[in-house]
Simulated assay, not measured.
Amino acid sequence: FDSMSARDPKTPVELSLREGLVDIGRCYLSDDDRLPNDVQVAEQWLMIGAEWGSLMGQMLLLQFHIALGQTAYDSRWLQAFRKWQSEEERGDFLWKNTNRRFEKLSSVAFELGLRAAIALQDAALAKEVSDCMQAASCDDLSLIGLQWQAERLLTQNEPIPEYSRQILGSITPGNDAKENQALSRFKTLLGPLPLQTWPDSPSWAEGLRQEYPWMVPAIDKLENEWALHHVTGHPVLKFRPLLLVGNPGLGKSRFVQSLGKTLGLPTAFLMMAGMNDNMMLKGTARGWSSARAGYLVDFMRENRQANPLVC
């Protein structure tokens, strides 16, 4: 085995000798009947291939270490992605031979590129990798979570509201394209949603008193909440739960609707009569056939508001 020809293969045979070392490591990693699963032996073979200059070996070794929990930024992620890009552009017969040996090589490159973009908070790199994935029609489900995180970088230059709240920290990808398509609706909750603030003056309360003179006790309580937030310098619109008690037709629901309109809040009305659990509010866990998000999360998503009014 000629070390010089392995480091700089000129023919498919020389390339096959070098990449064969990596193939052995891959077989030790997979459920291949020819070789037992042994991650330590797999790592050694991948390392040999990487040392001999195999890009496939370098990329698989980096992915292997990530799977073991080494997720702190490694500059080799970006280096490997750039090298893969240049090889793709060059596209000589040796590179095509390598791609035939390992058809998922592009997915590994995209993973390394996305991880580098997320770790560096580099929106330009995130867009570059996303464009490459789109051009390659990549539909690898294992990359969905990283794609969603990268998409957040693409909107980071958008103006952030002075007062906002991020509803979701992350979204765990599903097991199929249909589930991921449903989950993608909630990507907006990964970014900051605006929080409505209290009006500057108490004129809103006076207007409600004129329209609903029989609701003065409730309006007074709300005005006290406004005054407290105004004096303490907390402008985000927030008040303690308010219970309205009265006969049917008194105008309770209509008052809540007017309150939401006056304060500039999207208002949700939930009919809870006959409900024997709180699944409508909190949703159903994924894994069940009836899995769905809670109504409140859906309402915030639809209205892009982090503090809606709920009746």
Rank of each mutant, 00 (worst) to 15 (best):
G57S: 05
D122N: 15
L68R: 15
G264R: 10
A135D: 09
D139T: 15
F299L: 12
F93K: 09
G53R: 01
S290E: 11
I144G: 00
G207Q: 15
D200H: 12
R304E: 12
K127A: 12
T188S: 15
E103R: 13
R185T: 06
C27L: 15
Q121A: 13
K252D: 14
L68V: 00
S290W: 01
Q147C: 15
Q121M: 06
L228S: 03
A273D: 14
R185Q: 15
P199H: 06
L29P: 02
L78E: 13
W45F: 14
L154M: 14
Q257S: 14
Q149D: 14
Q134K: 14
N99P: 02
A67G: 13
S86L: 05
S107N: 14
A67D: 14
S258H: 14
C27P: 00
F239Q: 03
A150Q: 07
A306H: 03
P266I: 04
Q305C: 15
F239T: 06
A291I: 04
A177Y: 07
W288Q: 11
G246F: 12
G249F: 05
F299R: 09
G283A: 03
Y28T: 01
N276A: 05
R286W: 06
Y28A: 07
L243C: 12
F255P: 10
P159D: 06
E103T: 12
P248M: 11
L183C: 11
M272G: 07
L120N: 10
R18M: 11
D220I: 07
W204A: 14
Q134D: 13
S290V: 03
R26G: 08
L265T: 11
R292G: 08
G191M: 09
N276Q: 10
D92E: 03
T172S: 13
M59L: 05
P36F: 11
P202G: 06
V231G: 02
G233S: 06
M56C: 02
I144H: 00
V236G: 04
D92I: 00
W226H: 10
L183G: 11
L46D: 03
N278L: 12
G287C: 09
L259H: 01
L112W: 02
